[in-house]
């Protein structure tokens, strides 16, 4: 190979490394199990990643500012329970349940953001606190038991489909598209990258760093609220102990997708690919009937491997 070709190959890998890993994995799974590469199964994979996908898109905002949000799983539970409380048949219009859920989520995010920016407390600690508080609130609101008997107009958000495409998948698509445009094309989006890339320089450029960071946490919380609604609708009940450790999957998806934990680098496209990689892995291992002990090992190795591969391409 000529040197020019080699460098072009390296550049190609650096841009599409993750996509390549995903294609390789999918190809491998199609060979190993006939049930993987069917249209129906692929729709199922999309449906299964929708909740993690929405959370991962949300946490991407926060990661881009150089922060982190560990409270997502608990916020999912809280908002699911709260929304479910407004979703019993014949009580309120379903839009109210959705709005209340999203508001509850962005409220949690707003509190996170304000304490991080005004109180100058490390995001790790603030959101760790919120992890416990939101879980506690979810238990208080629900009295420790699931909120069930939900109206079908609510549960359709999790179980329904429009022209064959599951509604959670459509929600994820809308959220991801809007977030991509927001981050890449709007002023606040640009500021999020600037703050994460170099907070001091952003401040010295006259950017209201406090507002930008708070916004990122609030959006992240609001999307966690949306994910909580979709989850409650999908499992037809608001579960106070749902969503445990969901934040780790969401952060993993974003980081696999190339979003830097130190901020300023990354984006929604990568995050979606990361979520997809994790979803394909889960689905494929189940299809192949791999024992649950080995599944954990394989998942861990492939996640680290994918990021390694991606990093290598970038260098």
């Amino acid at each position: 190979m000529q040197p020019g070709q080699a460098s072009r190959l390296a550049e190609w890998i650096s841009r599409y490394g993750l996509l390549l890993a995903l294609v390789l994995l999918a190809g491998l799974l199609s060979c190993l199990t006939p049930n993987f590469a069917t249209a129906q199964n692929l729709l199922i994979v999309l449906r299964q990643i929708s909740i993690n996908g929405i959370l991962a898109v949300g946490v991407t905002y926060v990661l881009l500012t150089g922060g982190v949000d560990l409270s997502l799983g608990s916020v999912v539970a809280l908002t699911g329970v709260v929304a479910a409380g407004f979703a019993h048949p014949g009580e309120y219009p379903v839009i109210l349940a959705v709005l209340v859920g999203i508001l509850a989520g962005s409220g949690c995010g707003l509190v996170n953001g304000l304490i991080v920016t005004r109180g100058k407390v490390a995001p790790f600690i603030v959101t760790l606190g919120m992890l416990t508080v939101a879980r506690g609130l979810a238990l208080v609101v629900s009295g420790g038991r699931p909120v069930s008997n939900l109206s079908s107009s609510f549960t359709v958000l999790g179980g329904g489909a429009i022209i064959g495409i599951p509604i959670p998948v459509l929600i994820l698509c809308v959220v991801a598209f809007a977030s991509h445009v927001f981050l890449k094309r709007t002023r606040p989006g640009r500021y999020i990258y600037a703050v994460g890339g170099n907070e001091a320089a952003a401040y010295a450029s006259g950017i209201n760093v406090t507002a930008v960071k708070t916004l990122a946490y609030a959006v992240c919380g609001g999307l966690a609220g949306l994910a909580g609604i979709v989850l409650a609708a999908r499992i037809t009940t608001g579960q106070p102990n749902a969503g445990i450790a969901y934040e780790l999957d969401a952060i993993a998806a974003a980081v696999i997708g190339g979003t830097s934990l130190s901020g300023g680098v990354g984006g929604i496209v990568g995050t979606l690919l990361g979520a997809l990689l994790m979803g394909v892995l889960n689905n494929g291992l189940d299809l192949m009937n791999v024992s649950s002990y080995w599944q954990q090992i394989v998942k861990g190795l492939i996640i680290v491997g994918a990021v390694w591969f991606d990093q290598k391409g970038r260098r």
């Binding site: 709007t186 640009r190 500021y191 600037a194 890339g197 170099n198 001091a200 320089a201 010295a204 300023g264």
Partner: peptide
């Protein structure tokens, strides 16, 4: 510390302090 956002493009760095005028 106070000037560059290293990972951002030349274009984004240039307009950072007055992005309002270009949006």
């Amino acid at each position: 510390r106070l000037g560059l956002v290293p990972q951002m493009s030349v274009r984004s760095n240039l307009t950072l302090a007055n992005l309002k005028a270009y949006s």
